[in-house]
Design a protein around this nucleic acid. Sequence first.
RNA 1: GGCGCGGUAGCCAAGUGGUAAGGCCGAGGUCUGCAAAACCUCUAUCGUGAGUUCGAUUCUCACCCGCGCCUCCA
Length: 494
Amino acid sequence: MALRLYNTLSAKVEEFQPLDHGRVRMYACGPTVYDYGHIGNFRTFVAVDLLCRFLRQSGYDVRYVMNITDVDDKIIRNSARDGVTVQRYTAKYEKAFLEDSATLNIEPPTFVRATEHIPEMADFIARLQEKGIAYRTDDGSYYFRIAKFPAYGKLSKKDFAGMEDGARVDVDEYEKDSARDFALWKAPKPGEASWDTSIGPGRPGWHIECSVMSMEKLGPSFDLHAGGEDLIFPHHENEIAQSEALTGKQFARFWFHVRFLLVEGEKMSKSLGNFFTIRDLVLKGHKPSSIRWLLASVPYRNQLNFTFDGLKSAASSVEKLRNFRFRLTSAQFPAGANPAMTQLAGETIERMKGALDDDLNTAQAQAAIFDMVRSANAALDRGEVRKDDAQPLLAVLDKLDEIFGVLKDDDQPKMKAILDWARAEGREKDISPELLEIAGSSQLSDGDVNQKMSKMEAARKARDFKTSDALRAELVSAGIIVENTKEGVRWRRK
RNA sequence: GGCGCGGUAGCCAAGUGGUAAGGCCGAGGUCUGCAAAACCUCUAUCGUGAGUUCGAUUCUCACCCGCGCCUCCA
């Protein structure tokens, strides 16, 4: 079965086939680096990451480009407020974005920056002007003439034919021929960042960067264009207009839009006090893997209700998977193989692939893995798992994790890094005891832990439970989880 | 007002014209020196009303509620 994806352009679920056999070219609208990214931003980026990972797992060679918008109104406003250059201002938040992406195990795409493509944008606009599609106003701004692109509205399903010009002219705008015409290039204003270019001084409009950079990296027609649902209009509609008006070719073929999330059942907003960055959540003691799992647990086209109960639940779910993996890798099994386990592994792989092929139904993929884990754990309890069964079962987990990216336990160092950042930023008051507990579990080295573990085991063998319990309590208070199982003793960090 | 999405167990959340995945939490039990982990059992008739149908949670209509876009917010 092949991947079927919802395409905003056709408003249908379609079978996905790239233009070039075996090769996918995709572009995603990335962040505007004017502040720390919030969980809403990262829902989108995680969803696109899942898509990219699944395409790769499905055998495609994926070229994935993401833009970083490092010049826009908010950036100009905020950098002026802080009295720093635009460059310096955006550098801080771009770094934060890259760190947060890494925290969430988002595989880095090829990044492109708006400010590094200013001459190309000017050239693009000049060519639009040559074709009579763009026009210059007296102040030196350039606009896109929507009347020249009859297909305008095809992505957002808006009908502009009957709209009267002038009904809603924004008085702040310059002299546009039509109210719907959008800015390609903004004339310089005093105190604002400006570039001298072939079409005159100024700065790019919002949409032009994505047309220019995506086509430069991926060609005039490419397979997938992704972003948050809010970008459908006007951003992506305008990208299509600019690009297709210039090249006469179809721009992106599939449009992938990720739905907004809610927080505790309400729209996230600063005024409601339910606005969270990744760092805010980690400071509260939540693990990056919990955040990622929760964000990935609801299919991208559904509204996701992001709650703190949900985060705790996600933490337990990830824990369950990690425990299962731990159990398979740490125990000794009798030689041989159990055909039931081989079959279970095979069926689960099929179920996961089938779920993800179905417009990235991550919820069903997760259900498939949990079904397998339960069955396999039950078989383990009954002693029905043989030596040769471990590998195929672990392979299923690996396959799952190629997409979901939560099994490797590197939460602790990531949280420690954010703890250090908070201290450097003077945010001590936001550091929770939970974070300190987890980040602090590194105080005991692996060697220390192993030493105490063997002492504890010796005491247990001698049935000196008082001593062994005391050692265990000591380890537990240091953030170590100790398990004495039939298959042997083992430990891990909280 | 225009266009669109959704309302499923305490919470999160899939799904289907033939009586409902998965996760978390809770209760009871098994295992265990204890703890942890794990396993087993239990917990929903799918917003409300009407219609179509042999049969609807799944289709249609109405209503109520929530959400999104229509203003450079992912």
